[in-house]
Design a binder for these strands. Sequence first.
DNA 1: TGTATACTCTACTAACATAATAGAGATTAT
DNA 2: ATAATCTCTATTATGTTAGTAGAGTATACA
Lengths: 146, 146
Amino acid sequence: MHITYKGDYALKTILALSLHYGSGPTTIHDLARRADIPIKFLEQILLDLKRGGFVESRRGKVGGYLLSRPPQRIKLGEVVRFIDGEVEPIACVDNKYKGCKDISKCVFRNIWQDVARATFKIVDNITFEDLAKKEKKLHTALTYQI
Amino acid sequence: MHITYKGDYALKTILALSLHYGSGPTTIHDLARRADIPIKFLEQILLDLKRGGFVESRRGKVGGYLLSRPPQRIKLGEVVRFIDGEVEPIACVDNKYKGCKDISKCVFRNIWQDVARATFKIVDNITFEDLAKKEKKLHTALTYQI
DNA sequence: TGTATACTCTACTAACATAATAGAGATTAT
DNA sequence: ATAATCTCTATTATGTTAGTAGAGTATACA
């Protein structure tokens, strides 16, 4: 798994929309400013996220973006896979993979599968509701500290 | 973590040399044929592995490559990091990282650190001696099966 | 001392991915 | 009407990957 800038931006955007879930659309301008993302790059990312079924958009004056599902139904792993591709450290882990002559007796493949499983266990068990809660808690903790 | 072809080839080569440890050098021709690696590409990889202190070489007629340390002292993670770079899914996990404005209150960073720790636990606890043993076992099991 | 066999080193390249930027167009509330 | 907003396609600079090419150096041994 490698998280690119695009992936990082996508996740931060979905988190921002999760925190705002239920209170109307958020503009791209707002999203870009809050997570420090180049606006024209974010445009493309949001179009991708729309195609992936993660967000919806409203055009015109009071337009913006919103989640197309509640945060508890969006898993971290889903977004990562959609934007940055497979989570496995190497393609041969996939059962459909044909491209290595003796895949059945490869000691490395078993290890990469272990790594993949450990990663799945993390990213496929965290929803954006969980993340939003953590974010709120972290924010109030920091505010209190000041 | 992403294992490239180069990394995959490097690991397979170190494993082959581990299986041969203690019985003189193995030629690049042999290593390339056994793991199905383009020989000119493997040349470069072996030079890298030399610079990394993993292998030594002997030139001339009875030349070839050998491990510069016993297999039980070479960990999987060492080779992966040397050839394919850091194992973390994103650079911000590193404590030295400066490049994100509010890194201290980032919910994602904590998760990427969890992923990194889970990966370390696997790749930093496996030596090439372990791998060689598994390889031998797997091979005899398959031979027996036939 | 010649030569076959091996490793060494630098340069080059095609294809692809990443991280944007540019600019014209379509929609909608007021 | 028009300002604010999203939409879509094209382009680009930079870097990475997975090699290929070719000339050079060292060594065992007859």
